[in-house]
């Protein structure tokens, strides 16, 4: 490099703004669950989404091996309850914790992305509005470190 590096106020402001994310500048105030659970079609709508998700998983070479041997009925019931509870519905997830479940699976980013993609496709297939899709994804994103075992 030639010459001096001259600090620049705007650049410094931007650094401060960028590092502001580190200190918990999260998504604006959490939403009330107004209409979000209903937009997913309540528990029966969510059950349909999960069923379509399972069909997509079976067909997806990136992740179907990880689901071999899974009790499909129990998986379907647990995931439906979990999504129902996360979206503010009157359900209770009774399965094991996400971290415990995925502890020995060594889930990769590729696999995590594949599941996210299939969930979005399943919601699209069930005509879930984009806003409600995003609200559900917002609730699921905090599970990332548990599922990736980070």
């Amino acid at each position: 490099m030639t010459g001096m590096i001259r600090p620049n106020t705007l650049a410094l402001c931007l650094i401060l703004f960028m590092t502001g994310w580190m200190t918990g500048c999260q998504t604006p105030a959490s939403h009330q669950n107004d209409g979000f659970y209903d937009q997913l079609g309540q528990r029966s709508g969510i059950a349909d989404i999960v069923e379509d998700l399972l069909f997509l998983i079976v067909d997806d070479a990136r992740i179907n091996q990880s689901f071999k041997g899974v009790d499909v009925q129990q998986f379907h019931r647990h995931l439906t309850d979990q999504l129902c509870e996360l979206s503010g519905g009157p359900c209770e997830y009774t399965g094991r914790s996400m971290r415990e479940l995925h502890a020995d699976m060594a889930i990769t980013d590729t696999q995590f992305n594949a599941l996210t993609e299939n969930l979005i496709l399943a919601m699209e297939k069930n005509k879930v509005p984009v806003g409600a899709q995003n609200r559900l994804l917002e609730k699921l994103v905090p599970l990332y470190p548990d599922i990736r075992n980070l």
């Binding site: 490099m1 030639t2 010459g3 001096m4 590096i5 001259r6 600090p7 620049n8 705007l10 650049a11 410094l12 402001c13 931007l14 650094i15 703004f17 960028m18």
Partner: peptide, 29 residues
């Protein structure tokens, strides 16, 4: 957000450094 250290004039199409300033500067994007 991006912070860039650069000497490029018009992204480099007008060369690097100049008679007014020849040093690296931080730019906010």
């Amino acid at each position: 957000g991006t912070v860039r250290a650069t000497r490029a004039n018009q992204g480099g199409l007008l060369g690097f450094g100049g008679d007014k300033n020849n040093g690296y500067e931080f730019m906010a994007e």
